[in-house]
């Protein structure tokens, strides 16, 4: 009975961390999505400056480990404005994910036939309007499978904000280990929670894929 109580309290303790983890992942994914689509549009349709900027951003950020990006962005952000590790970490992860997501969307955009843009311009749409109303809606649906992949990765990479001391699942598991000297239980439970989260997320993403996937 004692053991069961302990197990329960461990899970409740870790589940509070789960809320934090999900929070980090969602913020990062959303920021990554917004900035990522912007970058991909800049890359494909922008002038020389915008296009190069997007290319350099994407290439450089993707060549550096996410942990390093998180550290750098955190220290940079921290020197400018006072933010909690949670927010700073989520934003950092978001900027990193934006680089990867921009590649996903770029791939989708360039696989849309040139005729689509031509037809949109032909009925008098401006370039911006065509991008917003014709290209992007199709590109986003095309991008769902590789995007799902990236989303799953962000969920797992959210564990990296541990390095900033954010009280997500890993931190809490570590505290539990420090208090009770039961590392296998603590980290094993953490692994289980992550596994379930990833499993559910994949199911959700599969549903998204099936419902909205767009094949040319």
């Amino acid at each position: 009975m004692e053991a069961l109580n302990n197990l329960l309290s461990l899970f409740i303790y870790l589940l509070q961390g789960t809320v934090v983890t999900v929070g980090v992942a969602l913020i990062a994914l959303t920021l990554g999505f917004a900035f990522g689509t912007l970058l991909s549009v800049m890359r494909v349709y922008g002038g020389r400056f915008l296009s190069n900027f997007a290319a350099v951003y994407s290439t450089v950020i993707r060549a550096v480990p996410v942990v390093v990006v998180i550290f750098i962005l955190y220290f940079v952000i921290a020197s400018i404005v006072q933010l909690s590790p949670f927010v700073a970490g989520s934003l950092a992860l978001g900027f990193a994910s934006a680089a990867y997501q921009s590649e996903v969307f770029r791939g989708a955009i360039i696989s849309i036939p040139a005729g689509q843009m031509m037809a949109a311009r032909a009925i008098g749409m401006s370039k911006l309007s065509a991008i917003r109303n014709i290209i992007l809606p199709q590109a986003i649906r095309l991008a769902i499978p590789p995007w799902s992949n990236e989303a799953a990765i962000v969920l797992k990479d959210s564990s990296l904000v541990y390095v900033l001391g954010v009280p997500e699942i890993m931190r809490r598991a570590e505290y539990y280990y420090a208090r009770t000297y039961q590392p296998l239980l603590a980290f094993g439970a953490a692994a289980l929670i992550y596994f379930i989260m990833t499993f559910l997320a994949n199911r959700g993403l599969d549903y998204l894929e099936r419902r909205y996937k767009f094949q040319m």
Binding site: K156, D157, S159, L160, M170, F187, Y194
Partner: peptide, 9 residues
């Protein structure tokens, strides 16, 4: 299905 960090620990 689990993060590398968790596996490491």
């Amino acid at each position: 299905g689990t993060p590398l960090l968790v596996q490491l620990f």
